[in-house]
């Protein structure tokens, strides 16, 4: 059969990685891009950090946010993970013929509010309209530029013994959106965690070199993000299931849909690997910041099983936590 793009290519898991490895990297390779961080550190007068992201989410409005808020937070957080203090955003919008103007106004208001909180300005933009049926209402692309505030963040600096921290409850965004999408008629208090992490990262920057690497575990979830830290390295990450903060309603929603919170997207969380001597300090820095009050140390870096993420289960069993392998599809029963 002809190879075509399938939904799996957009999952954030292995198939997405294969697109990057086989098509984009060979075509565009350069030092800044090859590092494959959430954003790139660029040379210039002051070092710049740049990132871009596209947003095609359905439904466009979901509990806890909408495509506009997501388009700001997604790119802002990517710049933050690369050590940047985000400053400027571009905004590209692709509108489908027939989109109600009221909806566009509402999305614009949401973008403005999120940008204000994240302390970024929308400084350039573009709008295109496609014929009815050629788009899905509204797609947004944002690119963000920030100034380097927290230099040296790289998975290369991870060491045995380092602590792994997550900044709060895991899987809320993915579970909330999947539940909203399923239209199961279930009333749920579940909300997306969509939020800008600018203040949290500013707080963490005070820990300096003790912070080895940061990532926002969006598509593919915490499990996939941590796998990206250790794959092709002699290091292993060991997680303790009991220590991972998961809301009861997120777990219940995931159980209902046959999903795993560790593979569900987060849009307002970060995972950090930190020198164990400074782990408490970093944890306190995250907890002091907005959206960080439920942060927890969830594991350690070791050499037990190189290249893998292991989970010590509540029953004291140990299992591998692999990368997401395709779009999460709900189970039958």
């Amino acid at each position: 059969m002809n190879d075509v793009i399938t939904m799996d290519h957009g999952s954030g898991g292995k198939k997405s990685a294969s697109l990057v490895q086989e098509i984009f990297l060979p075509a565009f390779a350069n030092d800044a891009l090859n590092a494959l961080g959430d954003g790139a550190v660029l040379e210039g007068g002051a070092n710049l950090v740049m990132s871009t992201d596209s947003f095609v989410i359905a439904p466009r409005f979901f509990p806890g946010g909408d495509i506009g808020k997501l388009a700001v937070c997604g790119t802002v957080n990517d710049v933050c993970m690369a050590g940047g203090a985000p400053k400027y955003l571009s905004l590209g919008m692709i509108l489908e013929e027939g989109l109600p103007l009221d909806e566009l106004r509402s999305v614009a208001a949401s973008i403005a509010k999120a940008a204000n909180e994240a302390n970024v300005q929308i400084v350039t933009g573009d709008t295109k309209v496609v014929e009815r049926g050629k788009g899905d209402g509204l797609y947004i692309n944002t690119a963000g530029i920030g100034f380097l505030r927290h230099p040296g963040l790289s998975r290369e600096r991870m060491r045995e013994g380092d602590a792994v921290i997550v900044s709060g409850f895991v899987g809320d965004h993915g579970a909330a959106v999947m539940l909203a999408r399923a239209e199961l008629g279930i009333k749920s208090s579940l909300c997306s965690d969509c939020a800008p992490l600018t203040a949290m990262c500013a707080s963490l920057a005070a820990c300096g070199e003790a912070v080895r690497v940061l990532r926002d575990p969006t598509r593919g979830g915490v499990a996939t993000a941590l796998n990206e830290f250790v794959e092709d390295t002699p290091l292993c990450i060991e997680l303790t299931e009991d220590a991972i903060p998961i809301r009861a309603e997120t777990q219940a929603g995931c159980d209902l849909l046959g999903l795993d919170p560790l593979y569900c997207a987060n849009e307002g969380k970060l995972v950090a690997v930190v020198d164990k001597e400074k782990a408490e300090e970093a944890l306190a820095a995250i907890r002091r910041a907005p959206y960080g009050e439920n942060a927890a140390v969830i594991g350690t870096v070791s050499a037990r099983s190189p290249g893998h993420v292991l989970l010590l289960t509540r029953a004291q069993g140990t299992r591998m936590l692999s990368k997401l392998t395709g779009a999460e599809l709900p189970r039958i029963c």
Binding site: T313, A315, G317, R319
Partner: peptide, 16 residues
């Protein structure tokens, strides 16, 4: 039951 299979695997019960 497939759900048991997954529950057993997720909890890492086999080696225990």
């Amino acid at each position: 039951c497939g759900t048991h299979t997954m529950a057993i695997a997720k909890a890492g019960l086999k080696p225990l």
